[in-house]
Computed example of a mutant assay.
Amino acid sequence: MKIIAYGVLTDERPLLEAAFEQAFGDRHELRCLHLFLNRDTAPTAAGHEIVLSSVNDTLDAEVLRALSRGGAELIAQRATGYNNIDLDAARELGLTVARVSYYSPYSVAEFAWALALAVDRRIVRAAHRTREFDFRLDGLLGRDLHGRTVGVVGTGKIGTAFTRIAHGFGMRLLGWDIAENPECLALGMEYVPRERLFAESDLVSLHVPLVPDTHHLVDARMLDLMKPDAVLVNSSRGGLVDTDALLTTLRSGRLAGVGLDVYEEEAGVFFLDKSLEVMTDERLARLMTFPNVLVTSHQAYFTRDAVGQIAGTTMRNIESYLAGRPNDDVLVRPDSSRR
């Protein structure tokens, strides 16, 4: 059986190939491509029954139709999020769609804190200065986090790991989610309405999935509620934040800092080298001009531990599909098998 993987990063490839070798040996064939899956590249999947997609691939109805025509039957997403996949179209085409529902929550939680600390303590600016032997402290004044209030938006596995670290800092804990997490309550978290969380928090970190109800969850109204010297961190999905509203807020001089590992129009930009091109995304380019904004390229999950777990779970999803076994990672299951 032929399997094709899209958007395979250089550091990811050996981990993906090792997991494949352990699971299947030479019984199947794996083809790894660095290019992303979209309408232009979908024809390269012809003849492959299984497609391994990445978070920045585009799997809209047109792409899924092309994959189906080429013989694809299983889409195995190498990520937890799946907002880039048209599940209704997949269902109509009789495709099976699976994802990785769990991997190390510590990878994202720890990186979210790295962003928060880097923004709060102006670490990137300081590092750039010292490389040029400029050792002044002007403009590098930060704040203690101990005793301040953190608002955790979404208290699932990643949000809970983030909360444990906040508890270690000695922070007051506010949370918002559709259900209260006993682990967070045990740490002293108080669940409050979203408006109160944004208004009272010195640091707000986002840890919810991108679904219709959370699209632009951080809009102009929420940003206006935030303290002028608060910090906002998003390591979840770019669409949670209304970029235009954020730019307006930053231009007004509000917010001490923003740490973004994701961006709502990141597809076609993140994971690629754009250094020799003109940046045509004016909103992203404008974000980069603010000295209190730090943007990274969707790397929060990118640890050996997490990527290894993602690869292993992806192979187990393939095994379950081939064996016809039930699998909680399956998002779309056709009414009848086409195999």
Rank of each mutant, 00 (worst) to 15 (best):
T130N: 11
Q309A: 07
S68Y: 04
V233E: 04
M171C: 11
T214M: 08
G154A: 06
M315K: 05
A5N: 03
F24Q: 01
H167V: 01
A18V: 01
R91H: 14
I158F: 09
V278D: 15
A46L: 09
R31E: 15
L35P: 05
Q22N: 13
N83M: 02
V100H: 07
R136D: 13
R69P: 00
L240A: 02
E266R: 01
L174N: 07
A66Y: 00
R221H: 09
E282T: 09
L225V: 05
F20T: 01
R196F: 02
F20W: 12
V278Q: 15
L232C: 13
V51L: 12
R129Y: 05
R325C: 07
D88C: 04
H215A: 09
V153F: 14
V218K: 06
R39G: 14
L95D: 10
L115Q: 12
E73G: 14
V218R: 06
V204A: 11
L272F: 05
E132Q: 14
L217S: 03
T44H: 10
F135K: 03
R69C: 04
L141M: 14
S235I: 08
I310M: 14
K2R: 12
E12P: 03
L225A: 15
F198K: 03
F133M: 08
T155C: 13
L210R: 06
S107D: 01
L272C: 02
R131Y: 08
L67K: 11
G175T: 06
D328I: 05
W176Y: 15
A311N: 06
A285I: 04
D305I: 12
D57A: 10
N83D: 15
E92R: 15
A61W: 00
A90I: 07
V153D: 05
G7W: 12
S235A: 15
P43Q: 06
V208C: 14
D281C: 01
R91P: 05
